[in-house]
Design a protein around this nucleic acid. Structure first.
Lengths: 362, 362
DNA sequence: TTGTATGCGTTATCAC
DNA sequence: GTGATAACGCATACAA
């Protein structure tokens, strides 16, 4: 029924060992035999049994991705990038949705980590302590873990340039004449939120007449923005920077409902540039984060630091495919942490500050 | 280093066979021994080797999901439901993004199908022929395939009630006085689009004064709606039903840009009720599809028709966990196809037809 | 360069 | 009800 390596060997008139090598380690077998075995394998429609290979090599050919919420456009975009790059390298991707629950995240990392060659973890809110526990108790030592958008000792990571993003946003607002700027933050404990707060402080130091008002912490979702919108209106700021786009969209919606005009009365800036940012009116000025690239970079870095071998995979795939498409294994020597640059994209939700509310500072 | 079943057997003073049974087939071993073995396994931190088990049982404990686009909120919601249900049943989920390419879809089904116990396929546009080919050439005979939102002989499926959705939408518009209604369709070859066209025809037959104008086929994305918006404005309809929400949102955006007021001049109805439908202004009247439930139903049906055993999984999991949480294996006898009911949700994008354009029919 | 033989960790098949 | 033993399909140490 199913064609095994022994069948290939028999049909090709070689030993199972040679057949194995001809497919998985082509260099170790004479060119003529190698070609012949590969040809026979193709004709018989041989498909290597992953379980058998995994049992002996210890490698699964799978990676896994854990995110707080697949429906959140931010994580959907990251997942798309991770998936694409993983596939390009010959890995299948296990995806798990942790339902915004850090405890579940840890459990998923443990369960899935046991059956993959590497883990990509998006966990904005897990505590540093829990994060440490992962490598000790939960995860096998030989399963590398990479963090997305979070820096933590020991783990490689791919992070967004948070400081530069808020700096660009603040400078933009300042150039438009805004002096009183509000910040609608993300959840307490969010690593990127604390990064952005630091960046904000730093950025406002450079522009002395700017006063930044902390509006507090909000769930980084549309609903959180609705609550934040009221604070924006009450705070007297002429512009607000939100922790992310969903929050900004909620603010936009709430301000409109209250008759506050955007950008005439208040300017709004988001972060991430999710697709919905251009669907609303006025379109949202925001900090563009190349999320798909971030996802791809995550896989690349994970594979490199984890020494996860993708070579044998492609060797075998190449041998069995008629065409034999090439793969780029990526350059070596990448640092354990990659910084993803960001760019402010100005749309309709920001405009010049009106006279009466500007020039409040010194 | 790693704890194997033999270690457990040795420590418990039984043979490997008994140890195996105590964990995977508890009924076959005497209660006293069973308890003892399970206790020892827990103490030693025994974790069964999936590869070894897969090698002999042929089952992987994994399912896989193939979607055209993970960033599309429709598929993101389905993926979320599928993932949740799969996990609840003890399966991990491989997710693949086919980048809107039916050929890639087929390839992914082939690749991933070889390493899972069942496949959930969202493939709105793959041709019936290619679909047939899957079960013949691409997929192993013992790997069940389930289709989401598409009916096709041989495969079990979970489908949305398309006819009822458009019927509800048309009746709503008719009740508001609309007589000339446009339909902005999905892509050529989309199964659900053809279903909705049929339903549309049927629905308008029941309401004799209603005239339905076919505005053509569009990519089911925001950009497609922008194009459709111009046709809406030019066609003289007072209301338009879009194939899905993204399309409707594009129409909304384009109409506003052209100065056409919604709903004063034109009413707009979408389909699916993705989160963004409530983010825009006016909020989109649309047909609510319980996408997460659809995803869960897909997994349930797949597991049932495919006779995919989730029992041994939970038996072992129960044995190893201190608490021993229960699982519901689901009832038998479910038909091979499940119909998901839908509901019109009226929001601000639909309103009464104005006098001069209504009453055009007989 | 190639073949032989062994073992990966688990479940299944028999006897007992 | 339990234990010895043979598979599952593959990669590899070692011998040739």
């Amino acid at each position: 029924m199913v064609v095994t390596l022994r069948d290939v060997a028999r049909a090709a008139g070689v030993s199972p060992a040679t057949a194995s090598r001809a497919l998985s380690a082509p260099d170790l077998v004479a060119p003529a035999r190698r070609e012949h075995v590969q040809q026979v394998a193709r004709e018989l429609g041989y498909r290597p049994n992953r379980a058998a290979r995994e049992l002996i090599t210890g490698r699964t050919g799978n990676l896994c991705l854990v995110v707080p919420d697949l429906e959140n456009p931010f994580f959907a975009a990251v997942a798309k990038g991770v998936q694409a790059r993983a596939r390009a390298l010959g890995f299948a991707l296990l995806v798990a949705d942790a339902e915004e629950d850090p405890r579940l995240e840890a459990e998923l990392v443990g369960h899935l980590g046991a059956q993959v060659d590497g883990v990509v973890l998006c966990s904005p809110r897990m505590s540093d302590l829990e994060l440490d526990r992962l490598s000790h108790d939960v995860l096998d030592d030989d399963v590398p873990l990479l963090l997305v958008n979070r820096l933590h000792g020991g783990y490689p990571s791919v992070v967004i340039d948070n400081a530069d993003g808020v700096r660009q946003a603040v400078r933009h607002l300042h150039a438009l004449g805004h002096r009183r700027i509000g910040y609608a933050g993300g959840p307490v404990g969010s690593w990127s939120d604390s990064q952005r707060r630091h960046g904000l402080e730093h950025a406002s130091h450079g522009l002395r007449s700017v006063e930044v008002t902390d509006l507090g912490h909000f769930p980084p979702l549309f609903g959180g923005g609705v609550a934040a919108g009221d604070l924006v209106a009450a705070s007297g700021v002429t512009a607000v920077l939100a922790h992310n786009d969903l929050l900004a969209l909620g603010i936009l919606s709430r301000l409109r409902a209250r008759g506050v005009r955007v950008p005439e009365d208040v300017s709004v800036v988001g972060y991430d540039d999710i697709p919905a940012a251009t669907l609303v009116s006025p379109a949202l000025t925001t900090v563009t984060v190349p999320l798909a690239r971030l996802g791809r970079a995550a896989v690349d870095l994970l594979v490199e630091v984890g020494q996860v071998p993708t070579a044998t995979e492609s060797a075998l795939a190449t041998a069995l495919s008629s065409a034999g498409a090439g793969r780029d294994p990526g350059a070596a020597g990448t640092p354990p942490s990659v910084l993803i640059g960001v760019e402010l994209v100005v749309r309709a939700s920001t405009g010049v500050a009106n006279a009466q509310t500007s020039e409040v500072g010194e």
